[in-house]
């Protein structure tokens, strides 16, 4: 079945962002559903002159925040991300895909670093657009990206590695 032409290019990015926000495939499905429901309710607030992807991502981000609060209230511990990467209790769909060290490392990142990493590295947001979406200064986005990338490098580098090149200020 074909997707509506206005939205067909946005669904995969929305699913990726949902995975980045929740770290769980089952919760990410629910997040996509709830985001669509809220977008339908709030369709009148969309200004056609504005970027549809940013509008949808913004709704997803707010929806995730409220769903997380609800889960916390219900006593469910959110963010059991380690279970995705240590292989002890893989979530439904993650168990069927190859788990590279990189994706496992991504899922172990702190929430805010994982989110910004996906926005910038996967969804190709500009630093400025990501800052607007997250409601933080551009400098904060950049420092989160830098910390996330450093953590990903460390995760893929053996602890005993010696004199590996590292990015540093170059004049």
């Amino acid at each position: 079945m074909t997707m509506h032409p206005l939205l067909k290019d946005h669904m995969l990015p929305l699913r990726r962002y949902a995975l980045a926000l929740t770290g769980k495939s089952d919760q990410s499905d629910d997040l996509v559903q709830e985001t669509l429901a809220r977008a339908i309710e709030g369709a009148a607030s969309w200004d056609p002159r504005r970027d549809l992807r940013k509008w949808l991502f913004g709704i997803m981000r707010n929806t995730h925040a409220s769903l997380s609060r609800r889960r916390a209230l219900e006593g469910e511990v959110a963010g059991e991300l380690a279970s995705l990467s240590d292989g002890s209790a893989p979530a439904s769909q993650f168990s069927r895909v190859h788990f590279s060290e990189t994706i496992a490392s991504l899922m172990r990142l702190p929430d805010e670093q994982r989110e910004v990493m996906v926005l910038i590295a996967v969804e190709s947001f500009s630093y400025k657009d990501a800052a607007e979406l997250l409601g933080v200064p551009v400098g904060t986005v950049m420092s989160r990206v830098a910390r996330a990338r450093e953590a990903l490098r460390s995760a893929s580098t053996p602890p005993a590695a010696d004199d590996k090149p590292v990015l540093r200020l170059v004049r």
Partner: peptide, 21 residues
Amino acid sequence: VAAEAPLDRVILPVERLGRRL
């Protein structure tokens, strides 16, 4: 991973949202 998610749950809301937009 994202592409593995089933489409059937979103077809209807995506269509509805698309029409409204």
